[in-house]
């Protein structure tokens, strides 16, 4: 009915947060990474704002395609109040219930997947640091 509104709300918050954090971040820490060929590569530590953008990308991308599905099923219309369920109180109550269950679950699962991505990227970063030879 309107479950995609919850991930969209989270996407707006994360997009704004990423912009604010990016404006406050300092120059990322540079690492000297040894390559397999015996040379060196300069890599920078991934800033948190960039990691937060991964979450907003997932949320925006998913929400846009999910909104299309709602248009397909006639749940979003181009006239006020735009959501057909918002037209009468009983449908509105059902819509709010769906937002609080399915919508919230969608946001939570996307966030959990993103946390998993953070863990993996941190492990990769730490491994790169470990293999950094003493200069």
């Amino acid at each position: 009915m309107a479950c995609f509104i919850v991930p969209i709300a989270e996407a707006i918050v994360t997009t704004v947060a990423a912009k604010v954090i990016q404006s406050k971040e300092k120059e990322p820490e540079a690492l000297k990474i040894a390559t397999e060929t015996g040379g060196f590569e300069r890599e920078t530590k991934i800033p948190f704002s960039r990691k937060l953008k991964w979450l907003s990308n997932l949320l925006w991308g998913g929400s846009v395609l999910l909104a299309f599905e709602h248009v397909w099923h006639g749940e979003i219309v181009p006239w006020f109040p735009f959501l057909t369920a918002a037209g009468n109180p009983s449908d509105a109550a059902e819509m709010l219930h769906e937002m609080s269950t399915v919508g919230v679950a969608m946001s939570v699962l996307v966030t959990v997947v993103w946390i998993g991505m953070l863990v993996v990227s941190n492990i990769i970063e730490k491994r790169a640091l470990k293999h950094q030879p003493a200069v």
């Binding site: 990308n57 997932l58 998913g62 395609l65 969608m106």
Partner: peptide, 13 residues
């Protein structure tokens, strides 16, 4: 990003 985001959301659905 788009397809994985949508896949996760449809999985919940």
């Amino acid at each position: 990003w788009m397809y994985w985001g949508a896949s996760i959301m449809w999985l919940v659905d």
